[in-house]
Design a protein around this nucleic acid. Structure first.
Lengths: 252, 252
DNA sequence: CGTTGACTTGACGGAAGTCAAAAGGTGTGG
DNA sequence: CCACACCTTTTGACTTCCGTCAAGTCAACG
């Protein structure tokens, strides 16, 4: 099995043979599998390891006292979670598997080693969390000044980009095993309205959401419908590549 | 002048005399002052220093192609910005002074020294960025499933907590030099609707927004109106304190 | 004292929520 | 293999929060 994390980080930087080997060795670590709907972490949990999703999809979700729920983002293969475990003492939200999901569990000690051994790795991991931030900011923009149609399109296009990054969307389709209500929780709309919006997106020939997969029929028009900005994720990087690696010289 | 950054970080951890001195020495660094409305950074800028706000208020703001604007958060004295400059090559949004604002400019070299010299400092700074993340997540929740009244209350209560942290809201009032439209940009509502909501909050005796200050008349009821969760910011920490410092032993 | 920008107020319309019920899938057990 | 329960998806009718437009007030400022 190819190490999906390595694949992702290499979009951002070039690793030495040793570093690459170090990363690839992570796949030998113990794994943990969660059933659909099962919580990986619950709010308030103390987390002692970093988790790397290798299969499936998980959602960061907050349940409010009144029962409302909001999904703050989806995690797909190649995503790390709770790197911040070093600092925060407990989770302020849940992490839930939305289909059968497998994680590699990376003990704190190993993460610590990675961080001290190689500054390239440190930067790559830091970049990964920064990209996560950028996604959060972008979601705020989304919900602040876009309507449901744009929000849903945006979510879909973002997922497309992210799946491409780990080589899982070469035919412009990818797994999306969530229900329409779950889509609603992620975009701040009701299931009913998600449904109507999906119908519109389908009738316009932009996407097809069926069989727990999303089929992007027209990436270019979807991107437009989403008001998607290239490079907002700091993910769609091509020319930027050189830029970053040169900057690397400045670092610790 | 007291170092407002030290004050803030000490809510989170205890520093040694040397570390404290190191932080306090930052106040000797050169300062930069921006007029109201002036951009501190613009989207696309390459940033080479970390900025510490010591006076005034700034807004992280994104302007969309269609002219819509969204404010993703306010920065107040004691807040650091662009710690992530180590990684990302350019800003994906603007940072704008909303009144006369003064920053201490901390060159990359100094930040690098701080990070290598002391792991306590490293953790404190990391914590600071994690708290920023928590705020972003909370704003997503806010906009996803709360109405305008709750969103505005939430913003106000959050600012109260943050100003208290730096000792600037001891009488439950603090500077808020923004217009009603700017409030709208931050909460995803129109200026007209902000206005009506402010009137409601005033008539209910929760807050008063005048003279470029916010007066919180009834913190407890405001917190309730905001559906505010204690500790969501990882800021309202009292008993947690010990918890974190003990965990500190585990770190690099 | 005219101009400008912020605040206030009212009338109207539309995007999206709510409620409710039918239609379509899926898994379980008899 | 059918029947049943259960959960999603779909559809329609109604409501409401909030945006839009527009006009009017007020204070600051040159």
């Amino acid at each position: 099995m190819v190490n999906v994390l390595t694949m992702k980080l290499e979009q951002f930087t070039k690793f030495s043979v040793a570093e690459r080997a170090r990363l690839d060795k992570l796949v030998e670590l113990p794994r943990q599998t969660y059933a659909a709907g099962q919580a990986i972490f619950e709010e308030g949990a103390k987390v002692n390891s970093v988790y790397l999703i290798v299969e499936g999809v998980a959602a960061r979700r907050k349940t409010l006292p009144n029962g409302d729920r909001q999904t703050m983002g989806f995690l797909i293969p190649g995503d790390l979670c709770e790197l911040e475990v070093f600092i925060l003492s407990s989770m302020d939200h849940d992490l839930v598997a939305i289909c059968e999901t497998t994680c590699i569990v990376i003990p704190m000690t190993i993460v610590r080693e990675l961080l001290t051994e190689s500054s390239t790795l440190t930067r790559a991991l830091w970049w990964s969390t920064m990209a996560d931030h950028a996604m959060l900011r972008s979601r705020i923009i989304d919900q602040g000044c876009r309507d449901g149609y744009e929000r849903l399109s945006h979510l879909f296009y973002e997922m497309l980009i992210r799946y491409r990054l780990v080589g899982m969307a070469d035919d412009d389709s990818f797994p999306f095993p969530s229900t329409q209500s779950q889509l609603g929780e992620a975009t701040g709309m009701t299931a009913v309205h998600v449904n109507r919006t999906l119908q519109r997106l389908r009738s316009e020939g932009l996407v097809d959401f069926s069989n727990k997969r999303l089929f992007v029929r027209d990436p270019a028009r979807l991107k437009q419908a989403a008001c998607f900005e290239s490079n907002y994720l700091h993910l769609e990087r091509t020319e930027r590549q050189t830029d970053v690696s040169h900057r690397a010289g400045d670092l610790v």
